[in-house]
Design a protein around this nucleic acid. Structure first.
Length: 226
DNA sequence: CATTGATCATGG
DNA sequence: CCATGATCAATG
């Protein structure tokens, strides 16, 4: 495998680098980086994201930082169909179930992660082999006031329920644009939380995810302003 | 067929 | 276990 690309020095450089990938297949990109392309993502669900991090020169690695730390930009690949509709929700971050006293939307991981995002949409219809999936047009996004408001409302609703000890009452149905769902190695994984009576108990770890309707809007918004 | 719940790999 | 990267797959 070729070494990871040098980190881009400016946002514009990152965006230009990303734009050069538009129209290329994952096979082309991986071959150039001398990385083997898996036949299935079943055992390597994060492969596409890691490939793009590698070729774009992301710096954070496994750290809890933005992918391009110096630029304060988070990288998100997103699978879409040929019309631009997202095929999956987008994982944002693990949800803290403890230590939420005094937590606000402004201080939340979700708010920080979504402050500035380089979206790399990839035409990733299931019938396409991994190597034949095509990078569409990447774009950099920050939430509009309206989008931030929607996100903040959902975050507050879900966080309130966690604080009230109702985490196990939460299903993916809650939230207009942001949902809370399991995020774990398997259904046996456990983390600490409080129940309704304020007692500690072990529950499935959860994560915040952006619903596809929301990310679809981002993509359409970008197409309009392009 | 959209959605929710379950799952896979890796590093610290 | 938690945080990184997400998609798989059962269900309604």
């Amino acid at each position: 495998m070729k070494p990871k690309a040098n980190p881009p020095l400016h946002e514009q450089e990152l965006l230009e680098r990303a734009h050069q990938l538009a129209g290329l297949s994952l096979g082309d990109i991986a071959n150039d980086a001398e990385i083997a392309v898996p036949t299935s993502l079943r055992k390597e669900k994060g492969w596409i994201g890691l490939l793009l991090e590698h070729v774009l020169g992301a710096t954070a690695g496994t750290q809890a930082k933005p992918d391009f730390d110096e630029l304060g930009i988070e990288l998100k690949t997103i699978p879409i169909d040929f019309t631009g509709k997202p095929l999956e929700t987008t994982f944002v971050s693990v949800a803290p179930l403890m230590g939420l006293v005094g937590a606000t939307w402004q201080t939340s991981h979700v708010c920080h992660k979504l402050a500035r995002v380089l979206w790399v949409p990839i035409v990733s219809e299931k019938h396409l082999a991994i190597k034949d999936r095509i990078v569409a047009t990447p774009f950099i996004w920050s939430p509009s006031e309206e989008q931030a408001s929607l996100l903040a409302n959902d975050w507050q609703e879900l966080t309130d329920m966690i604080v009230l000890g109702e985490v196990e009452k939460i299903s993916g149905k809650y939230g207009q644009v942001l949902q809370l769902r399991p995020k774990a190695a398997n259904s046996q994984a456990k983390t600490k939380a409080f129940d309704k009576d304020g007692n500690l108990f072990m529950t499935l770890p959860r994560g915040f995810y952006l619903k596809t309707q929301f990310t679809h809007e981002l993509i359409k918004q970008h197409l309009r302003t392009n």
